[in-house]
């Protein structure tokens, strides 16, 4: 069976895996974005808190994903839980870092102007600082998504959902007739999903970055 025949045979399973993969990444990204921006907002004004948040987030990233999932399984069991936790944790770093850098990069005279015309602290943040920091935050989200696409494949190790299952099945039966097809289908599927998400982010950028600050 060549690769195309394999795809033709298994497309239903592959589509279901792809959908689950995308859905897991998407949901984890939503959580990571909310958490990441929140952490950024809470820490960017303080030198040490901001640095601590960034360092902690990069610390997590240095843990190999397989090891992290391995460590999570005894704590939360198999399946969705370790997958979600791992993905959210990995997704945090680029978002937290870019949120802090973006918020700190807002021209201080604009913050001064916002205060000066009588904006409350919350209004300054929501109406001025976050919109101006949004382009770098969005970049962080994009980078995080790309990363999670790959990392999500590892989740299959913990019986998580997604295209990783395809890859692991292939790897565990190396030498069998479909092994290569399985690895190839899983990998290509992930690459395709990543490209698709990226296209969506370009669109999101177009829609959400105000015209006045679009590059």
């Amino acid at each position: 069976m060549n690769f195309w025949e394999y795809l033709g045979n298994r497309y239903q399973q592959l589509l279901a895996d792809a959908f689950q993969h995308a859905s897991a990444v998407f949901q984890c990204m939503v959580v990571a974005t909310v958490l990441g921006v929140l952490i950024g907002v809470l820490t960017y004004r303080s030198e040490w808190a901001g640095n601590l948040a960034t360092t902690a987030a990069s610390g997590i990233l240095t843990v190999p994903s397989l090891a992290l999932i391995g460590l999570l399984i005894p704590l939360v069991g198999l399946g969705v839980a370790p997958t979600v936790i791992a993905l959210v944790l990995y997704g945090l770093l680029p978002i937290v870092r870019n949120a802090i850098v973006g918020l700190r990069g807002v021209d201080p005279t604009l913050v001064d102007a916002a205060r000066g015309i009588g904006m409350s602290r919350a209004a300054q943040l929501v109406r001025v600082e976050l919109p101006l920091a949004w382009p770098p935050i969005l970049t962080g989200i994009r980078v995080a998504t790309q990363m999670l696409m790959g990392i999500a494949a590892i989740a299959a190790y913990a019986s998580g959902p997604g295209l990783g299952n395809e890859i692991f099945r292939g790897i565990s039966s190396l030498g069998s007739k479909n092994a290569l097809n399985q690895v190839l289908a899983g990998t290509l599927g992930i690459v395709l999903l990543a490209l698709l998400f990226d296209a969506v982010y370009v669109l999101v950028g177009r829609l959400t970055i105000p015209r006045g600050i679009r590059a």
Binding site: L110, D112, G116, I117, R127, P131, L132, P210, G212
Partner: peptide, 14 residues
């Protein structure tokens, strides 16, 4: 109290 500053302080995204 109106407040106007050197660099105009206009918000570029508005």
């Amino acid at each position: 109290i109106g407040y106007a500053i050197q660099s105009s302080g206009l918000f570029p995204h508005m």
